[in-house]
Design a binder for these strands. Sequence first.
DNA 1: GACCAGGAATTGG
DNA 2: CCAATTCATGGT
Length: 270
Amino acid sequence: MPTITAKRFNLKDTLDSGQLFRYWPHEDGYLIGQRKSLFFVRQQGDTLEFEGCDKRYITEFLGLNDPIAETIRSLKGHKHLIKAAKQYPGIRLIKQDPWECLIGFICSSASNIPKIKRNMDGMSNLFGDRVETRDETRHSFPDPGEIDDLGKIRSTGTGFRAKFIHGANKIVTDNWLSGLKKKTYPEAKKELMKIPGVGSKISDCVLLFSLGFREPFPVDVWIQRAMNEMYPQTKGMDPKKIEEFGRGLFGKDAGYAQQYIYHWRRNLKS
DNA sequence: GACCAGGAATTGG
DNA sequence: CCAATTCATGGT
């Protein structure tokens, strides 16, 4: 199997930090689905072994070239944050397929990770094609335009989000999504929020986890909780205010700050 | 501004 | 165990 060297990287923490939904523990690694592809990755110390995709792709996907030392340096004045980052130094922001990411986070509203996984697997099974890697079969994630049956979308347990997914499927294209990368953060966010079911939090997730932006600071209940504890002055602020507070505090690396805080707080005590 | 949609997961008693 | 609460968005 081909390999890559990845220092101070942790595959498990990265995958389990709530960024993507179609991955499955397999043998002593993971199978990962992204649109038409299905690939396998396993970590052995500083070495990543992979199969089913090329080296350039997986390096980009896992954020292995992110200047993480620089990010930590620029955040080092924030002692609460550094505590979280030190506990999970191997987390990276991943760069996933924007369309699949968008639908995943539309599913995420008022939901939870196991259920989102079921929604996404269900839509792949109903609308996607068979794909195989290492003798395992999964289904690809459908393209924009292919998720065209509201009843089937409902049947995967998406509930009131089904009509948002159906609506997004009608108006979004891959080209439109890629075009957002060239815009500024506020402009790209404004565009994304035109999609039904996409508010401030979900657009920030898509910008951060698929379109390469680093300054979004998506605020969900876990971030709100953690920020209230770490920065008491945020108590009583609504999510929009906390988002502004976080971006003001952490600046261009607010996205990484958010990811450290989220994973740390969710894994606290248990 | 408060409530609901649909429902599994999580928390509280 | 069973009941209450959680949860992001858009519409009323």
